[in-house]
Amino acid sequence: MSSASVTAELDAVLGDATARLAAAPDLETITALDAEFLGKKSAVTVAKKQLGQLDPSDRKAAGQAINAARAALEQAVADARERLAVGARQAQYESERLDLTERLGAVRRGSLHLNTQARDRLEDVFVSMGFTVAEGPEVETAWYNFEALNIPDWHPARGSFDTIFVNLGEPEQVMLRSHTSPVQIRTMENTAPPIYIVAPGRTFRTDTADATHLPAFNQIEGLVVDRGITLGDLHGTIEAFVHAFFGGEVKTRLRPSYFPFTEPSAEFDISREDGSWLELGGCGMVHPKVLRNCGIDPEEWQGFAFGFGIDRLAVMRYELDDIRELVNNDVRFLRQF
């Protein structure tokens, strides 16, 4: 025997093994072939054991041939296994195929009510401008709704509020608040200046619900009380808010107006795209009597207040044709937003 004959034999074995492994249909066959070609009785193992019988000058070459053959056989077995594994994985993938456009029982996220969305956006803008958010009750006494706000019982402005009264206490002394301004009073009574608050909330009026009116609607009120606050500060604050909320291109306008609880008073308008003006709300410098009613010295502190409707903003933003959609709670409406 010589190294050449060993090499020839192993080449033949390798050829045979490669062909049979390539054709092996399953893992069992590969395991059997693994034992046959690399096991104790395999040609490479036998050849290795017989190495000592060779002429010493031949041993090195024969040894190298045997090792090369074993390495090649091991690689062939590993390749065969990999080939099967890839195929099996592929088959598994195919068997697991899903159509992701079948949406049975999909979980849908709910919707926040448009009023809440509008209110949150307003709160966020004012918070970024240094305001906190105050809240108050929807049922109020005449003191908070009227008297503290410099609207005595005979005042013609009282009639213009179309107040809804509540059967508690003396007649017309307890009511559904007709504006959010009572929160001003409650805040000033309980907080020392400086005060920077907004007060969003529901307000009421004896209106029959129709496409543009609701007896219960939402307003937001702003109040600033600090040293040296001016009408210019009021306009500047409204302008900053309008730019943040509606966009930098929207202009603001203040027009003299009248509210018993502010002096000077104004209406504020914002510009529309066509150049016309939209009346947004009322504002003014807090009336000295109102400050005094809350125990604040009007010589030391000055303030401004402003207020406007929230529902209207939602109506404008989404061009709603009927404001009653906001209280109908129809899912076909709610889920649009």
Binding site: S128, G130, P264
Partner: peptide, 23 residues
Amino acid sequence: GRMFGYMNIERTVPKGENAGGLS
């Protein structure tokens, strides 16, 4: 103010000392 014209009054923004925020 009315006769001077509200629109002729310079607009300023007061800066409170406290940060704003939600409770």
